[in-house]
């Protein structure tokens, strides 16, 4: 079966700094795949290359076997790639429900509608409410995002991405900046997502990684150091030295 997402020989540098060094990578259908690596390894850059925020210098990106390397970020979303950002990238001045509804309306193709009030689009509102209920945000639907505590803003990030009904969901440190006792809430939400979505997530907390990932890719200095099951990664000496040893001090 063709993987949900496939990357071949992806390269990207910022000046002399190589941040993606001939990356070959596959994300299986229904994957729960973690991408780990020390700070500055190039994880977010990799996500931005996948999502179309950055252009690669070389290499190809295939979604369901189709080449999307030249598509813009917006067109990749339409093809089924949804993503969240490491630092909140939200509609801060809009209500929680509107944040999600904008994404849903975009996916349903009603966001170009000029002559009917947004509030008359029940199909959009109902779906947004269902998502907010799932993420425990329903009571806050009218709250303006910038008034939310940080942890709940992270959930809105995820809600927006889910509103796109992506086939491939990329989460860049979904629990970043959230106190550790709250980060489980976010990962609980992630673990409840439909099984057929392929999920790639970046996470620094190894407990969370080993708990939720079925596969792990380790990135260091823009290159893939190794890939395997959580067990394989945990027992790999190189990884222990370069990454786990470092972060667990």
């Amino acid at each position: 079966m063709t993987p949900a997402l496939e990357v071949k020989g992806l390269c990207r540098s910022f000046g002399a700094l190589i941040v993606a060094d001939h990356i070959d990578f596959q994300l299986e259908r229904g994957a729960r795949h973690a991408l780990i690596g020390p700070n500055g390894a190039g994880k977010s850059t990799f996500v931005n290359l996948l999502a179309g925020r950055l252009r690669p210098d070389a290499g190809r990106i295939l979604l369901d076997g189709q080449d999307i390397t030249r598509l813009s970020a917006a067109h990749r979303v339409k093809r089924g790639i949804g993503r969240t950002f490491q630092t909140n990238t939200l509609f801060r001045h809009l209500a929680v429900l509107d944040n999600v509804a904008l994404a849903i309306a975009e996916r349903m193709g009603v966001s170009g509608q000029l002559f009917r009030a947004a509030s008359a689009h029940q199909e959009v509102i109902e779906e947004a409410r269902a998502l907010l209920t799932m993420l425990n945000l329903m009571a806050l639907e009218k709250t303006v995002v910038r008034d939310l505590p940080y942890g709940q803003q992270r959930l809105v990030e995820i809600a927006i991405a889910l509103g796109l009904r992506p086939r491939v969901l990329i989460l860049d440190e979904p629990a970043a900046g959230v106190p550790s006792h709250e980060s489980y809430l976010i990962f609980d939400a992630i673990s409840q997502m439909p099984a057929d979505i392929a999920i790639l997530f970046i996470e620094h907390d190894m407990d969370l990684v080993f708990r939720f990932a079925r596969r792990i890719t380790v990135l260091a200095s823009g290159a893939i150091l190794m890939e395997g099951t959580p067990k394989e990664v945990e027992s790999d000496r190189k990884v222990r030295e370069i990454y786990l040893g470092e972060s667990r001090g």
Binding site: A74, V77, F91, G112, L114, H121
Partner: peptide, 22 residues
């Protein structure tokens, strides 16, 4: 309209608007 809402979205955060496929 939804169009008006999407204009507000563009004003508020253009990157995110592109990130939802607009």
């Amino acid at each position: 309209s939804p169009f008006g809402a999407s204009l507000a979205g563009i004003r508020d955060n253009r990157t995110r608007m592109e990130g939802i496929g607009a």
